Amino acid sequence: MQRRQATLKEKLSEHYRKRDFKAKKQTASTAGVVFFLCMLVTLVLEGLVVLLPRYYTSDDGSMASGYRLSQLLAVWLFLATAANWYNTYYDVANRVTKEMKAAHYPSSSETPPGWKNCPLCMLDAPPRSHHCSLCNYCILKRDHHCFVTGSCVGYHNQRTFVVFCIYTLISTTWAAFLQISYLNQDLPISTYWASFYFPLAGLWQYLAGAVPFLNFFILVHLCCTLVSFGLVVFFLFWQLVIIARGQTSFEAWKQISIYRRRAVLNNFQDVFGQLTNFLLCLVVPLRLPMPADGIKWVIEPKEEKGH
């Protein structure tokens, strides 16, 4: 008996019946990367084409002084933010490899003291390392998985992540100022147009034809900029706190402080290296060598009371 061929409708029905519609963790990481890249590109284009020309246009139609300098600053912030984003994204140096154990314990087949065996990576991982289910690697001194960069923040890129946050904070602050200044010229906040600055009210006024599309678009962009500003303030503040305490986010959550150095400056040097290196990274987005290898860690002895 000849088997009947399934129709296209039956094939599509079977395909969607077997499809897993559950949200995956990687989806959030991909969405974060797409959101950031879209915001980065649209903000610099909006700033150069719309916001800066409007802000620096004088009453007689000429450009006020400082316009060209502001353009160069906008381009520089765009390039520096993008470069530090890439330096954080490129986290290959953070991945634990079998060569790391061979370099420190060449003749040992057992898991070294303080290390742990990862059943997923099938190798021994150094202290403070943790496996990331999204990256599918054990990460040296893993702090967290960053959904904006789509990578893990660990020993070799925590410094660039902090610099990336600093540039993002500067960029979003300036962008929000220019966006509010632009909207305030057409729709002054001190008048009845104040309701426009609430997103739902602004959407209603745009659909009713009371405001042009460009103003509504900049309002939506302003909301995204303010959300980005709030997130980067939180992450930058949190990073500075745990770095000062000599901890990772996991160690702070578990109240582990055995790697904390007695001097706060030493805790910062463990992440940023020498002050000159950090200042150089602020100006030029370089990946300079870290002060150590992120594999061996010294456990500070606890101070006795009264000493």
Score class of each variant (00 low, 15 high):
G306K: 00
R128G: 09
P113V: 12
S129K: 05
N277H: 07
L73I: 09
V232A: 09
W193Q: 07
H156N: 10
W238M: 15
S13F: 06
F198K: 04
Y206A: 05
V34D: 02
D293R: 00
V49H: 10
R3H: 14
G306S: 00
L214A: 10
F35R: 12
P285L: 01
G209W: 06
Y16F: 15
D270S: 06
N136E: 12
W174C: 09
L140D: 15
L79T: 11
M100C: 01
G61S: 02
K18G: 01
W85M: 05
C138K: 00
L8N: 08
C223M: 04
R260V: 11
T97Q: 12
F147T: 15
V233D: 01
T168Y: 06
K25T: 05
L240Y: 05
K101W: 02
Q158E: 07
L203D: 05
V283D: 03
A83T: 07
Y167T: 11
S70D: 03
P127R: 04
M1S: 02
R3I: 14
V75G: 02
T81C: 12
Y16E: 10
F268M: 06
P106A: 00
W85D: 01
E14C: 08
R287A: 04
P53F: 00
L123N: 11
D270N: 06
P212W: 00
L134T: 08
R159W: 04
R4P: 09
M122K: 11
N266Y: 04
F164P: 11
N94T: 13
D293C: 00
Y155S: 08
G209S: 05
L280P: 13
G32C: 10
N136G: 04
A23R: 12
T88V: 14
L140A: 10
L236T: 08
L240D: 11
N157S: 09
K98V: 09
H156L: 03
Q239T: 13
F164W: 15
N267A: 08
P291W: 00
A64V: 10
G230K: 01
A23L: 12
Y86D: 14
A93H: 04
N94G: 15
A31G: 07
S257F: 09
L37F: 07
G66M: 08
V41R: 01
F217G: 06
G230F: 03
I189G: 10
Q269V: 11
A176F: 09
Y137H: 14
I218K: 05
S257Q: 14
G61F: 06
V34C: 02
E99H: 09
Y67L: 08
Y56L: 01
Y259C: 14
R128L: 03
L134M: 06
Y56F: 07
E303S: 09
F36M: 15
L219T: 02
L52E: 06
R54A: 15
V211C: 04
L226F: 05
D143Q: 12
F217N: 10
K254G: 04
R95Q: 15
